[in-house]
Each structure stands twice: as structure tokens, then as C-alpha cells.
Design a protein around this nucleic acid. Structure first.
Lengths: 180, 180
DNA sequence: GAGAGGTTGTTATGGCCGTAACAATATTCA
DNA sequence: TGAATATTGTTACGGCCATAACAACCTCTC
């Protein structure tokens, strides 16, 4: 509370605390010798903070009121597009662990939104399928989520949105090879 | 597994499964009537996916091997910059709940990395402070994390990185007012 | 065929996070 | 001053996620 940046001239009203902190941290890092890198910090911080706020907002505003969660919705959305799918494939395309899929499917199955069915050709395997209730839920939540996403990105012009998507995609394509 | 896009001509080798799915989903959404919005989906998906991969990578590669977690490191990093700070302020600048801060501080305190101290002027309040071990840990992890972040963003030129930071910051500044 | 080795899904354990409820303390205001 | 209100930190509970270990099953190779 003593090193609070509130003593600097206000950059205008209504800057949220997280951005105020980010600006302060960036200044501090800019004054440090390498390997401190104020630009890398700012990019990573803004990226993670935006993702966190967006996730939290979609979760509390769209999905929780409907008895869903964002991860649960994302899984159901994949099933909606792909049809019945094995957990191992869901884990692959989500870059998640198989046990995370197991847990998510358990929660959704408890809510009657998905079902597990054995695969005749493979005694180990299972496919997860949307129930009728699950499909209705995903359609409705999808519409709401799209509306909310558009609100979040409305402050960018169409060209800027495309540019941002392209930059994100480039990083994703050239992701460091040895991901743990 | 039946609606798998593997039947389409390969866009080249070595496209990770998550991006292959993203491209497929984008195509499907582009063929749907409103309110489906393939562009909004692509932007949100790439943003959340990149954040997730970056978080997971930093966590498993930098922090877990040192007995830390990414949220724990981020809290310690704030303490490093700000000095002793009250949980309520940490929650504010992190846009997190107070109970999340309590939990994180508990974990760090168990590891001897931070301490809680009562505030004489306010019987409710507490300040969290880095221990000597905590400061050493945060300095070392900070150096490694910066190095890794630079690797992630190395595929972008300096101007592109600045542009991306600016676009992210713009969204964060004009975030929807009613965040739940 | 039979056994070695890989794959699939699950469980156990532990950390993160949110909401809701709570006790303790401060503050406000009649 | 004294009661109503607000704030601070914590706990309880449930969901998400990872790693590690495991049983069941498949596949490959000899």
C-alpha cells in the first residue's frame, strides 16, 4: 500500500486496478537491467489478463446461470460439431489431459447433458454423445456466448479483429516445439 | 471420429490437433446462419487457446519444477514490485476473489515463501510479505519466465508484438462495463 | 498362440478458483 | 453514544485441471 502508484498524475478516470498495476509494473521493469523485458511482460500480462476476464465473464454471465460451466460448454460444443467422440480425441483437440475429460464428462453426465456409450469394436473405448437436452443447451448457450463475445471485441474494427486473430494464430502455429 | 476433417486435403504437415479443430469449426460456423459468427469464434478461440497453452507451458516448465505454481508466482511477483500488501488489494489488482488470495497465500506460506503480518491500525487487516526465500525464488523464476515468454513471441516482429499488445490493451480498457 | 508393450479410461491426490456464509472489526450516522 | 452498515479475512463446498498409478484391453512380434 506504500509503493502504490496512486501518487502519479492520474491518467484519466476509471482505469481498472489490474491495468493500473500493469502500467506500474511495466515502468518498473523498463528501469531494470536485462533479463527484465518490459515489452514481453506487457504482452504476456495483457494476454493472460484478457483471457482470464473473458473466461470469468462468460462463465458467470452465460453459463453458470444455466447450470453449465465454460469448460463443460466447450466440450459440448465440440460434440455438437463433431458428433459422438472418444474422450481421447476430445483430450487431443483440447490439449487437455484425459483425466480432465473424464471429470468434465462426469459432471455433464450427472446433469443429463451427455452420455457415454461403449464401442463394440474396442472394449476399452467409449464415445461421448450429446443427449437431446444437451443439444438444446448447447444451441442456446452458443447463441448467448457469441453475442457476448461480439460485445467484448466491438471496440476493434473488422480489420483489427482479423489482424489480431492472425497474430494469435501465428503464435499458435509456431508454438515452441517442446511443450513440456 | 466419423466427422473428422482428416478427409480434406492436408494443409501441410504438423498442424496441431487443436488448430485443426479450430479450422474445422470455423468452416462449419461460416456455413451457419446468424447468430453464428465464425470470426468472433476464431478470435475468442485463438485467444483462449493461446492463453491456456502459455499458462500450461510456464507452469510445467518453469514453476512446477521449482515447487511453485504460476498463480503463486504471479502473487509473489506483485509483492516483489509492491512490497507488503493487503490481501484485499492483491485481489483487486488481480481481479480475483479474496478467498482465492487466501488460498494462494496459504500455499505460499506453507512453503515459507511469504508471511502474514497483522496491521496495528486495523484489527481485521493483514499484510502479506515476501520472505528472503520468497524473494530469491521470485527473482530466479522471473528470469526464466521472461526467457520463455520471449521464445513464445519470437515468431512476431517487434512492431507486431507492440501492435498485439496495443490491441489487447484496447480491449482491456474498454471491457464491457457490467462484468457480472 | 503367447507374451511384451502400448493404449484407453478411471481413480487418487493436490492446487486453483468462485460463491456463499461467517466472525471480527471499522465506520457511519442518527 | 449506540445501533445499523460496511469491510476484511477466512472457511466450506463444488467445479476445473494436472500428474501418477492402475486395470482392462488391444496390437504387434516372435
Amino acid at each position: 500500500m506504500n509503493s502504490e502508484p496512486d501518487t502519479r498524475p492520474d491518467l484519466g478516470v476509471d482505469v481498472p486496478p489490474d491495468l493500473r498495476y500493469a502500467a506500474y509494473a511495466r515502468e518498473r521493469l523498463a528501469a531494470m537491467p536485462p533479463p527484465a523485458d518490459a515489452e514481453a511482460f506487457a504482452l504476456a500480462y495483457h494476454l493472460l489478463q484478457l483471457a482470464y476476464l473473458l473466461v470469468t465473464d462468460l462463465e458467470t454471465r452465460i453459463h453458470r446461470p444455466r447450470g453449465l460451466t465454460l469448460p463443460g460448454f466447450r466440450l459440448m460444443f465440440k460434440l455438437w460439431l463433431l458428433g459422438p467422440t472418444q474422450p481421447v480425441r476430445l483430450a487431443e483437440i483440447s490439449a487437455m489431459s484425459r483425466s480432465a475429460v473424464t471429470n468434465a464428462v462426469n459432471t455433464l453426465e450427472r446433469g443429463g447433458l451427455v452420455e457415454r456409450r461403449p464401442v463394440p469394436e474396442d472394449g476399452r473405448a467409449v464415445v461421448v454423445t450429446l443427449t437431446a437436452a444437451g443439444e438444446a443447451a448447447v444451441r442456446e448457450a452458443f447463441s448467448e456466448q457469441t453475442r457476448r463475445e461480439r460485445e467484448w471485441f466491438a471496440c476493434l474494427g473488422p480489420a483489427e479483429r482479423e489482424q489480431m486473430t492472425a497474430l494469435l494464430a501465428r503464435i499458435l502455429h509456431s508454438r515452441p516445439a517442446d511443450l513440456s
